[in-house]
Computed example of a mutant assay.
Amino acid sequence: MKRKLKLVKWVLAIALLLTSIIPVRIAIAFYQTPVPQAIFVLGSDAERMKFAAQFWQSRQNLDIWVSDFAWNLDVDRRIFLQYGVSDAKLHLDGRATDTVTNFTTLAEDFANQRLQHIYLITSDYHLRRARAIATIVLGSQGIVVTPVAVASQNQSSESLVRVLRDCGRSFLWILIGRTGASFNPRLKSSPFAQFYSKTNIQ
């Protein structure tokens, strides 16, 4: 019991430390790079891809990064090509299994590209959760996001419970490098579960 209590105290202490450091890193990133350097689109919705392609028309100097399920990437590419976005401007990534892993699978890539500020494109109902995850995951890497909402038919944003759950998973990723995505029952029942377990995507 004492060991568990001690562990909880350590986790809380680290979480408090992180929550104080992340805003500082975000502020520095925004100060150094006030204008976004790339476009980041969350997948699973063709409308987001069409919106991003149109959004890019007035920002053609920027690369577009897409995080989607692997089996959607061919469709995503075709949509962007239809709008005149060349392959040279596209970075399509199929490693994600959910919204948290949309960010954790690409955080290192963004950092390696020295990106400090990116546009974040997703559906309006999804934006609150995505922005919260981005603040933790990308913020911990010194990357700030400017959110851009895609209008949808959904009338309400996602629940606070889902937001808090994924914030917790994001902190877990910072602490131990895993997000707990392997516990997702939908992933386990998916025909792609074996692929993900082999590639150790968390």
Rank of each mutant, 00 (worst) to 15 (best):
S20W: 13
Q82W: 00
S159T: 11
Q194P: 01
Y83D: 03
T101Q: 09
I64D: 01
K4V: 10
P34N: 14
Q113D: 10
L120S: 06
K9V: 00
G43I: 08
W10L: 02
V163M: 07
V163E: 10
F103I: 03
V24P: 01
K4W: 13
G142K: 03
S170F: 08
A130H: 12
A27Q: 14
L164E: 12
P23Y: 09
G142N: 04
T99F: 13
K198D: 10
R95N: 08
S157A: 08
N61Q: 12
I28H: 15
V145C: 14
E108I: 02
A151P: 04
S44T: 09
Q194I: 04
G139I: 05
R77M: 02
S197I: 05
V100I: 13
L73Y: 11
A53R: 05
R186P: 00
W56L: 07
R3W: 02
A15S: 14
F103Q: 04
Q141C: 09
A151K: 08
Q113R: 13
D63F: 05
D63E: 10
L138M: 10
T99W: 12
P191Y: 08
L120N: 06
H126T: 08
K6E: 04
I136E: 13
I174F: 13
L5F: 14
S86F: 06
T104A: 05
K6H: 07
D93E: 12
S190N: 11
D98Q: 05
P34E: 12
G94C: 03
T33C: 10
N112V: 00
S140L: 03
F80C: 05
P185C: 01
K188P: 00
R165I: 07
A38H: 11
I174R: 14
S152P: 03
L7S: 00
A15Q: 07
A53V: 08
S58I: 02
A107Q: 08
H91Y: 12
A13T: 07
R77P: 02
A149M: 05
K9M: 01
V163L: 08
I143F: 05
T105F: 04
I136G: 11
R162D: 11
K9L: 01
R128I: 06
Q32W: 13
L115F: 15
L73R: 07
A29T: 09
L62T: 07
Y196Q: 11
V75A: 13
Q116H: 15
Y31P: 00
E158L: 14
G177P: 06
G84Y: 05
P191R: 04
D166E: 15
R3Y: 12
V41G: 06
L172Q: 15
R48P: 02
W65M: 14
R77L: 01
N184W: 10
Q155Y: 04
P34F: 14
K2F: 15
S197E: 14
F51G: 05
I14E: 15
L18I: 14
L90C: 04
R128F: 09
A130I: 07
I14S: 09
H91S: 08
I79C: 02
L164G: 01
W71E: 12
G94L: 03
I22H: 11
Q82N: 13
Q116V: 00
N154W: 12
S20C: 11
P23W: 12
